[in-house]
Design a protein around this nucleic acid. Sequence first.
DNA 1: AGCTAAATGAATATCATTTTCAATAGGAGG
DNA 2: CCTCCTATTGAAAATGATATTCATTTAGCT
Lengths: 150, 150
Amino acid sequence: MQLEEIKSKFERFLRQKGYKITRGRFEIIDKIADYGPHFEIEELVRWIANQNRSIASRSTIYRTVRLLQEFGAIREVIKLGNRTIYEFTAGKPHHEHLICVQCGKIIEFYKEEIEELQDKVCEEHQFTPLNHRLEIFGICSHCKAKSHED
Amino acid sequence: MQLEEIKSKFERFLRQKGYKITRGRFEIIDKIADYGPHFEIEELVRWIANQNRSIASRSTIYRTVRLLQEFGAIREVIKLGNRTIYEFTAGKPHHEHLICVQCGKIIEFYKEEIEELQDKVCEEHQFTPLNHRLEIFGICSHCKAKSHED
DNA sequence: AGCTAAATGAATATCATTTTCAATAGGAGG
DNA sequence: CCTCCTATTGAAAATGATATTCATTTAGCT
Ligand SMILES: [Mn+2]
Ligand SMILES: [Mn+2]
Ligand SMILES: [Zn+2]
Ligand SMILES: [Zn+2]
């Protein structure tokens, strides 16, 4: 289980930054890990609020997600309309996404060659890449099949 | 000059949809074409408002940008924070972007091989791609040089 | 235990974008 | 050219995600 490892690294991160170790922050990490691979903050806020014991307010959840991004355990992966979908990168290898615009399904993929070509492009432009995001929007096989039914 | 061509195709599009041909819509196209390759709507609204004769209200500008997206002359190319950067695709070939997180500079590029690999990935997942966006965030050569000065 | 700065929650603000609604203007038909 | 119907427009208000404010609480040091 690497969740504990991430939490202890996060603890070190907080200490080093002079931030405090609070129960709320670690409970939010647990909830995010429980929630699933991809989430929207509002969705998470509602999900947490619907549980017996509310562990943190909306403000704290937003603040903690920001902190976890700074730390590097969370990244923004899809931006569509006014929605931002995050993911808990927690030891997961880097990857990109196919997003079904019909049903919202998210498929993950990784193509080494695409990554290499990106580095090549950056070199050609003397550009120092920090991060990137490749979003492919389209129709998943399930939705495709369904639309042929009628 | 293909701007005129685009406008006449847009006119056909409007007619076909049962929409009306209004002066405002075409003046907004002219302004967008004048403005530059990439724009944010609020920026455009302010820019248009600062000109002698105001050609359209904020609402109409938003509505027209949406219409032009539907028509296919404009696409969302970068989403960073709460900012959306659009571009007038007006006959321009498809491309992706490098975005300097320091100065905001946008560099365009196109790599045929990346496009092909994307199609391959989609096939592998029986996914029908409609459109995609590859954003590479980093530091441009100019900002890099500047940060080495001190 | 006592002190101080950081964290928290609730309410409020912000910012981009959308919607509402009353007034106006295309454009089809006469 | 006139009339009527409907789409469009502008201004203001609403929305929705996220950020900020501020009074209160808490972590962590002495
Ligand atoms: Mn993912
Ligand atoms: Mn571009
Ligand atoms: Zn689907
Ligand atoms: Zn730069």
